[in-house]
Write a protein that binds this DNA or RNA. Sequence first.
DNA 1: CGACTCCTTGAACACTATCAAGACAGGTGG
DNA 2: CCACCTGTCTTGATAGTGTTCAAGGAGTCG
Lengths: 242, 242
Amino acid sequence: MQQHVSGETSVAAMHSPCDDCDIRDLAICGTLRVDEVQRLSRIMTSVELAAGDTIVDEGEPSDFVYTLTSGAVRLYKLLADGRRSVTGFLFPGDFLGVSMQDIYGSSAEAITPVTLCRFQRTELEALMMDIPTLERRLFARATEEIQLMQEQIVLLGRKTAAERVASFLRSLAQRQEKRHLPANPVTVPMTRTDIADYLGLTTETVSRTITQFKTKELISIENGSRIRILDEDQLDDLAEAI
Amino acid sequence: MQQHVSGETSVAAMHSPCDDCDIRDLAICGTLRVDEVQRLSRIMTSVELAAGDTIVDEGEPSDFVYTLTSGAVRLYKLLADGRRSVTGFLFPGDFLGVSMQDIYGSSAEAITPVTLCRFQRTELEALMMDIPTLERRLFARATEEIQLMQEQIVLLGRKTAAERVASFLRSLAQRQEKRHLPANPVTVPMTRTDIADYLGLTTETVSRTITQFKTKELISIENGSRIRILDEDQLDDLAEAI
DNA sequence: CGACTCCTTGAACACTATCAAGACAGGTGG
DNA sequence: CCACCTGTCTTGATAGTGTTCAAGGAGTCG
């Protein structure tokens, strides 16, 4: 939940109905001026959802854009016969629904209880017209996302099951570091099935691979949803540092 | 090569060193004013390369941005042991190297002889500052690309070999239509190995799958690099219309 | 404590990869 | 003009990685 505590009064708390989140934490705000942040905060509203709740459905009109404040989210697409492909996971600071398409490209569900900041798309777009920096930041995030997706394509197209799971653990660790959390006991809020659908494997193969990593003492399970990395070097070799 | 013939004198021909391409063909220019197109055309230079030539290497400083004018290009990433993942194919009108990253995320090679329009990144970025519409267009392209990559992730994560090849043929047909070319005899300029590395399969499996489609009379091979779709409905069923 | 979901483990199978060799096509040089 | 050469494509036989089907174990919550 990493709630930032600050000596000065929160801009978000003063100007926005989104009282639960400090707008200055949002990656988007990095290079905005104070008055611009205030304008942004005025169009935000806070949303809280329980684990398992649907946030948006693929194909729906994309009326809202969200940023995740706490919790974790899975993005996925379904094939006609029910096969599921998890296209990504979101953690605090990540965006949801930012695109110039008029419908959502994926469905999104809360993995844990989540807090989101919600923006009306039309209002955000009007704001982007006025604040070029805002659009630049979103564009930069989009190209970052493209890079991550390319790595996922390499993973799905050419990596073995063990390499996929190792890459996955490493990417979770890296994302924790980016959020200024300790990298090592990796928090894994999603189920084996979520991981499997993300890595193009089955639940059983993910489970077997993790067991195999435990047996080789590359990792250890701390409790239900924490994995400690014991041999980072060997895990990185498996993940095939790109 | 779809060279547009127009009654009026070409803006590109008058103002740009990129004589081989009509700048107004570029998707990027759709909503730009004439004077803006002229400014854009002044910073373009034309590049011609032979089949097999490298355009950019992954990890290099991304000094240039390109648009493809004629020919076809493959984008790919390599793993340490030589496994290759083709992350995409480019056709006329497509962009190469547009991102806010300072290095290229993929390598790019010419599949056929190609003509490219090249922009110095610094100049393009300066232009983006002045012409908000330009940045919006590029942002929109980025979100389109994200959508296509998500579909590729579903393909790689959850589709069978036959479904992958069917999806691939359909996507080539759709891209031909977007370029105002007939959709049906699909031109396939890339090798079976390129296709395999794009679909997460082997050359042999791609070849066998295509043979199987021929046997079932879903397609027929016209000559080396043209495939005629005979039963679009059945192929679409296989591709699992998303 | 029981019902639930999630996770793990086992055994058999299947899809695709691998290894191997031959067919075809396009280009080159004698 | 034809033989050759090279790279690409196809086809076959075999093997392997991951899936499927099945059941039991573990943790959680009412």
